[in-house]
Design a protein around this nucleic acid. Structure first.
Length: 805
RNA sequence: GCGAGUGUGGCGGAAUGGCAGACGCACGGGACUUAAAAUCCCGAGGUAGCAAUACCGUGUGGGUUCGACUCCCACCACUCGCACCA
């Protein structure tokens, strides 16, 4: 009887839909909880085979843990607000509301067709008012606790998407969403004080169980750097002190070599001191030019440094008293440190290049050859070179001088120890329609006024005029009955904030909502949050993992500190899955139109085959090229599994299979914990091969085998189980293995001579070295004979023997 | 430039100090069939040999070890992340 996957898979999917056996139970009286999370679906397209890389292992783990007696929470939802969905909707000419509603239904149907055992009753969607009610609530708490602020300044702006972007969204000077060049624009935008959380985020990174390379990427992103903050007195041409310039440096040892100070073009002092800057017109022109240049341009011609001298201003080196000129230079970033840097051309390559262009003198203060390029800190610290031209520090090894100079400057009161972070505050504003409205109004009398919590959610008004605005304001600014409102505090006329939140907002707390997804009164019931606790295993792609996980840490830390949630850590273990690549080696994705649809594979080969095939292609973390090649190996494996029904003989576990079965139970359990599905499948194929050689399987063996395979191939195993045992496999428990049946009585042991394998002997387990040598002498005199003098014998019991002659 | 990772048959990949190439695909041979498909069985890293077997073999070169795909050092290639971060 052939296996008809179509009718079998449909039957079980219908039953699961109707009977909901995968519902997670709040406060289960006996079972311990286990929380498996797969990342949000991005509602901008269909699922493709790449999605199976993350969903199927998570599903297998959830099913496995249920058999092990856990009360498993395995939910799903959609990330629907934000640029990806909005741009996709615009491209198709569909209103985002309709686009997202249809998209959500589509991915859920596709999930069910993949046999994914989500608790669909807990499904959430970030653009539903009942969900973003609580995104807005969290923003209000951030605002009330001083963690959100609005500030005017130069920000990343994408002219193509007509919106402000965060640093994270504009890496390398390119817009993360459209790939276009990002420019600097002056705007008033919302920021979240993420920088303040840097050290807490580093602690989170240390605690989470995650691949080291991903952790490194996060530490790198936070970019903790220890150094000194130095205050330089600033003078005008009349030698009158007009202010101070604070700079951050990690190389205080080069202070005697400072020949200029460089400010970021956006530095606030320029505006403040316009009367003292003699070439202000020229300076102003430079600032305009740099703002218009995209960041990509600025990065691409790193070789030719640009800048402008601030004529009429100078600073004094606090140790030497030397007058030092001040420049604006766009290699100095406004967002890092103080937006100003002391420049030492002899010992910093960027300063060197800038000095070459502007004819600025160089003072060498550490030994080495600085004639062609700078001798930088990596080199001089490694060699611990000696100081020069540095007053009393000359001749001192640089490491010692670094300490001594710091002490002296601290004593003089012109410097202090300082820790800096690369990570900036999170720019939390987009000028687009499709996002969470800010629950905030601007009142001429009261200033920024948060909405009352009882007035949440502030619903995003429906409109057909949702395209990005050419003037860079949000489309919401055109909806008058939304913009105009009364101040909640004084009742006078006020205006609403018309920017919306970035798409990262909704995904920065969603795992919490799954614990209590429909609660209208709080973001989630505290006791339920306590019950489900941290996510035990979180799967998904690695594409935006650095940012997403840091945002998640940030929000959960904040919520924990205000007492809204009971745990500081959102996730215990995060496992990043690899990609499925197309035949040109590119990532399979919804945007590049190279996605192979799961429906196509399911139609031809069935869901179970699709699930197995994707994971037989390669390991969980590996990028694997998509191919149909080899899928016949999977389908014939499933056919052989189906055929087991006709091979049942006897009840108890047979002596022939006892060891294989015990080994298999151990192997599958261990591999599932680590999501190593490829080796699971291979082990099961080997087991089936053994069964077929012997020509029978007992009822008890079939029982256990079907449970082992069920997490990966849930449909076929459910069907066979029901046919043979007359009940639902979901009620069974994970089989146990017995340590004493893991080893055969007879083992094969390689015999090496001088480290090379010469023979493989079949001997009884736990054989001693002497006994084994006797066997070798008797059976293989060409290897050694009794009485031979052997230089050395290395014997590892039950593993190997190596005879050194 | 900085950081991390990867490199194994014709292909996807196993093995993390102890028989390299498990498992699967493709390939070759055979059985069944009028025939084909499907199914089943057998073979297979390379070189030499009828064979037993020998030698070579996990990017390259060195090292540690009785023993190295595995650990260490250097180099090459590719991939990813960050990138004027003071």
């Amino acid at each position: 009887m052939n296996y008809d996957f179509k009718s079998v898979e449909k039957k079980w999917q219908d039953r699961w839909e109707k009977e909901k056996p995968f519902k997670a139970v709040d406060f289960h009286p006996t079972k311990p909880k286990f929380y498996v999370l797969y990342e949000f679906y991005n509602i901008s397209g269909n699922l493709h085979m790449g999605h199976l890389k993350g969903t199927v292992p998570a599903d297998a783990l959830a099913r496995y843990k249920r058999f092990c007696g856990y009360n498993v929470l395995f939910p799903i939802g959609g990330d629907a607000f934000g640029l990806p969905a909005e741009n996709a909707a615009i491209k198709k000419g569909i209103n985002p509301h309709d686009f997202v509603r249809d998209g959500m239904k589509r991915v859920l149907d596709q999930s069910k067709a993949l046999g994914l055992s989500f608790d669909y009753d807990r499904t959430i969607c970030t653009s539903d008012p009942e969900y973003y009610h609580w995104t807005q609530w969290i923003f209000l708490q951030l605002l009330k606790n001083g963690k959100a602020y609005k500030k005017r300044g130069f920000v990343n702006f994408c002219p193509n998407c007509q919106t402000v972007l965060s640093n994270e969204d504009s890496q390398g000077g390119k817009c993360d969403r459209c790939g276009g060049d990002v420019v600097q624009k002056e705007r008033s935008v919302w920021y979240l004080k993420m920088k303040e959380y840097s050290d807490r985020l580093l602690d989170n990174v240390d605690r989470i169980n995650m691949a080291e390379n991903l952790k490194d990427a996060q530490r790198n992103w936070i970019g903790k750097s220890e150094g000194m903050q130095v205050s330089f007195d600033l003078f005008n041409s009349a030698d009158k002190q007009v202010g101070k310039i604070d700079i951050f440096t990690t190389c205080i040892e080069t202070i005697y070599g400072v020949t200029f100070v460089a400010l970021a073009p956006e530095h606030e002092l320029v505006e403040k001191l316009r009367d003292d800057i003699k070439n202000f017109a020229e300076v102003e022109k430079y600032r305009e030019q740099t703002a218009l240049r995209s960041e990509f341009d600025r990065l691409s011609d790193q070789k030719t440094k640009t800048g402008v001298k601030l004529e009429g201003l100078y600073i004094k080196n606090p140790l030497t008293g030397d007058k030092v000129p001040v420049y604006l230079a766009d290699f100095v970033l406004a967002s890092y440190g103080t937006g100003a840097a002391m420049a030492v051309p002899s010992h910093d390559q960027r300063d060197f290049e800038f000095a070459e262009v502007f004819g600025i003198p160089k003072i060498q203060v550490i030994e080495g050859d600085c004639s062609k390029c700078a001798v930088e800190k990596k080199e001089y610290l490694e060699k611990n070179s000696r100081m020069m031209n540095s007053a009393e520090f000359s001749g001192m090894p640089v490491k010692e001088a670094k300490k001594k100079i710091a002490e002296k400057m601290i004593a003089l009161g012109c410097a202090q120890k300082k820790i800096n972070y690369r990570m900036a505050d999170w720019s939390f504003t987009r000028q687009r329609y499709w996002g969470e409205p800010f629950p905030v109004v601007f009142c001429d009398h009261c200033g920024v006024v948060p909405l009352d919590e009882k007035d949440l959610p502030l619903v995003l008004p429906e409109t057909n005029d949702y395209l990005p605005n050419v003037n860079g304001d949000s489309p919401l600014s055109k909806i008058e009955n939304f913009v105009n409102c009364k101040c909640p505090k004084c009742g006078r006329d006020a205006r609403r904030e018309t920017d919306t939140m970035p798409n990262w907002a909704g995904s920065s707390w969603y795992w919490l909502r799954y614990c209590d997804p429909h609660n209208p009164n709080v973001l989630a019931d505290f006791d339920k949050l306590k019950y489900w606790g941290s996510v035990d295993v979180y799967t998904g792609g690695t594409e935006h993992i650095t940012r997403h996980v840091l945002y998640a840490f940030f929000w959960q830390n904040f919520l924990y500190e205000i007492g809204a949630v009971p745990t500081r850590d959102p996730f215990i273990r995060k496992m990043g899955s690899g990609l499925i690549l197309d035949d040109t080696g590119k990532k399979m994705s919804k945007s590049s139109a190279n996605g192979v649809s799961p429906a196509e594979v399911i139609e031809k080969y069935g869901t179970d085959a699709a699930r197995l095939h994707v994971h037989f292609l390669g390991g969980y973390e590996d990028n694997t090229p998509w191919t149909y090649d080899g899928i016949s190996g999977i389908t014939s494996f499933l056919d052989r599994v189906w055929a087991l029904q006709d091979m049942v003989k006897g009840d108890a576990v047979s002596d022939e299979h006892r060891i294989e079965l015990n080994k298999l139970i151990k192997k599958i359990g261990e591999d599932l914990e680590d999501l190593k599905l490829n080796t699971c499948i291979s082990a099961m194929m080997i087991f089936i091969k053994k069964i077929r050689e012997d020509g029978f399987i007992t009822k008890s063996e079939l029982h256990d085998f079907l449970i082992l395979l069920n997490p990966l191939a849930p449909h076929i195993t459910s069907e066979i189980f029901e046919r043979v045992f007359g009940r639902d496999i979901l009620g069974e428990s994970w089989p146990k293995f017995d340590e004493k049946f893991l080893m055969e009585d007879t083992i094969s042991i390689p015999v090496q001579v001088n480290g090379k394998v010469k023979r493989v002997l079949s001997v009884k387990r736990d054989i001693s070295q002497e006994e084994l040598l006797d066997v070798i002498c008797e059976k293989h005199p060409e290897i050694c004979n009794k009485g031979d003098t052997l230089k050395k014998v290395v014997f590892v019991p039950n593993k190997i023997i190596n005879i050194i002659k």
